[in-house]
Amino acid sequence: MIPIKTPIKWMGTLALVSLFLVPTAEAQKTKLTDPEIASIAVTANQIDVNYGKIALKKSHNADIRTFAETMVRDHEGVIKQAVELANKLHVTPKTNAMTKSLLNGEKKTTKMLNSKSGKAFDKAYAENEAAYHDAVISAIKTKLIPDCHNAELKGLLTSVMPVLEHHLHMAKEMAAKFK
């Protein structure tokens, strides 16, 4: 692992993204159900697919494009596995406060990304990817996995972690290049 200095600039983005993901004290007390967890998992992955597609539309930077392609492929892969498992378990994803909060965050971030172009876009995309993966990792670790009832669903969430950690590592490296 290559040590990366705390990228102060994307800490601001992190704080913003965290608002949408880190559950409040009240939400922390209320346990999520498995259908709610399935909805959050699918939504969180779909949002990063969508960000990746924006990058593929807007960026001309080869590193950004390669990274975005990986995000689209990996997160679509995770969604496919999650949907197959939910079907098998007869779990119907249920929209909840956290799903809505994620989608609100996506709306704002999409607007922000669409307002930028060139190097400013690449930088904003890379920083947001780092912040977003960081926030999703902590939400899965501190809320989704502990609240999950079904062992197979918990297993899926657990196996997503190394994928997200890898993406975070790559995103941090990329964000550092645009400082």
């Binding site: 492929r73 990996d74 892969g77 995770v78 196996s159 997503v160 994928v163």
Partner: peptide, 11 residues
Amino acid sequence: SIFWINHDIVA
């Protein structure tokens, strides 16, 4: 020969 099998959740 080496046989690689993907048991991960992504390609």
